[in-house]
Design a protein around this nucleic acid. Structure first.
Length: 394
DNA sequence: TCTGGGGTCCTAGGACCC
DNA sequence: TCTGGGGTCCTAGGACCC
């Protein structure tokens, strides 16, 4: 039986939430991004932040997501800059997802502002269901969204973008040549900047060019897996299921400094930031009740080159000091001779805490954390407890 | 006007094991 | 001596997405 999948995408989500709090800004160019202290006229902004979201009025000036705020300020100096308020966005995110689940329970989370919904088993025409979903989201949150409904996720996602904002687009396989093929290849989820450039160099701009290209030729240029995939998706084919629950693979915290720091000259500041990142990751692990076996760090230099180092320990850990000990080992393996603009700490190889506790006769979670620290190799477990050795020794 | 922060998945080489 | 053939785990980097 043919499936019926919806993709629902909130319109300018962060900015729209801000407008609910500040209705007097409605109809004006508003940009969300930067830190709290940066709020005000976009033209007055100084710093390294990027645009998180822009209202459609701001987009009219060429401002878009991911753009540096300094560049956005040059394009739309009179726009209003608001800092991101993630607590509010998470509340509204839960709100619109709850509203959808009341109508159709099979929902796949794709981040804070979009979802896939499997409507195959839900009664009603696609047009009716689309309108009901849109109205439920509006009633539940006061926010507008765009919806695409199609036989698979690929076409649903492409559809939801076709009539933004506030759109409802229903696509079947028969619509692919007329409505999908004229789009740029980069509209397909999974064809990013690198692949777009490579395709363009080969004379392929549109999805139609991809769909009619020789599959073997695509495989020669892009490899067995990606080449075959390009041909499949260009023809609207996609069998991925709507996945309602999945375990996290990694957790990370990173920060870009207001100015580039040097391992020697700014040793104390870097060390404090490093400890803070480890503490925050440990907090995330504790909050979500996970342990990690692999700890990694990320360093971005002033020239934007980025290196990562990772280390896997025999037994899972979760405490801030244990994380810092392993992350410190990683840090010793990266060159620290030039200025750094970003530092990050990451954990992966995650195990739910419950799985461990159960196998260890009723151990309460607080004790589990302390106990598992001892599972580290001895030098790592004992060294940092008193006065942590600073890895920024230069 | 240089480029945030949080993720996922893939690739490829080397170690190591049978 | 002229080169097995898997399989898994670990590490580093990169593409991509929201």
């Amino acid at each position: 039986m043919e499936r019926r999948i919806a993709h629902l995408d909130m319109d300018a989500f962060f900015a729209s939430v801000e407008l609910l709090k500040r209705p007097e800004l409605k109809g004006q160019p508003v940009v969300v991004g930067g830190r709290r202290a940066d709020a005000g006229r976009l033209g007055d902004y100084r710093g390294r932040g990027v645009v998180t979201t822009a209202t459609y009025e701001a987009r009219a000036f060429g401002v878009g997501s991911g753009m540096g705020l300094m560049k956005a300020a040059a394009l739309a100096p009179h726009a209003t800059l608001l800092p991101a308020d993630f607590d509010a966005y998470r509340r509204y995110s839960r709100g619109f997802k709850d509203a959808v689940r009341a109508i159709a329970p099979v929902v796949e989370d794709r981040g804070i502002d979009e979802i896939y919904i499997d409507l195959t088993a839900v009664v009603g025409t696609s047009a009716e269901l689309g309108r009901r979903l849109r109205e439920a989201v509006l009633a539940g949150t006061g926010l507008s969204c765009s919806i695409g409904i199609a036989p698979n996720k690929l076409l649903a996602k492409l559809g939801s973008e076709l009539e933004k904002p506030g759109g409802l687009t229903i696509l079947g396989y028969a619509d692919v040549p007329l409505r999908i093929w004229p789009l740029p290849a980069s509209k397909i989820n999974g064809i990013g900047p690198k692949s777009t450039a490579k395709l363009a160099a080969l004379g392929i701009e549109l999805i139609a060019d991809l769909a009619t290209a020789d599959p073997d030729w695509l495989v020669r240029h892009f490899g067995e897996s990606y080449g075959a995939w390009l041909h499949r998706v260009a023809n609207g084919r996609d069998e991925r299921a709507v996945v309602t629950d999945s375990e996290p693979r990694s957790m990370s915290r990173e920060t870009t400094f207001e100015r580039d720091l040097h391992a020697r000259a700014d040793k104390a500041a870097l060390s404090a930031i490093f400890t803070d990142l480890c503490t925050r990751v440990a907090g995330d692990l504790a909050r979500h009740r996970y342990l990690a076996r692999t700890v990694g760090i990320k360093v971005r230099y002033d020239d934007f080159r980025t290196v990562t180092r990772g280390l896997t320990v025999p037994e899972p850990i979760a405490g801030a000091e244990a994380l810092r000990a392993v992350a410190g080992q990683c840090l010793k393996r990266v060159p620290l001779d030039r200025r750094i603009r970003l530092l990050g700490v990451r954990v992966s190889g995650l195990t739910p805490l419950g799985a461990i506790s159960r196998s260890r006769s009723e151990m309460p979670p607080q004790d589990a954390e302390a106990d598992l620290d001892l599972a580290l190799p001895r030098e790592q477990a004992t060294a940092p407890t008193a006065q942590p050795e600073l890895p920024f020794a230069g």
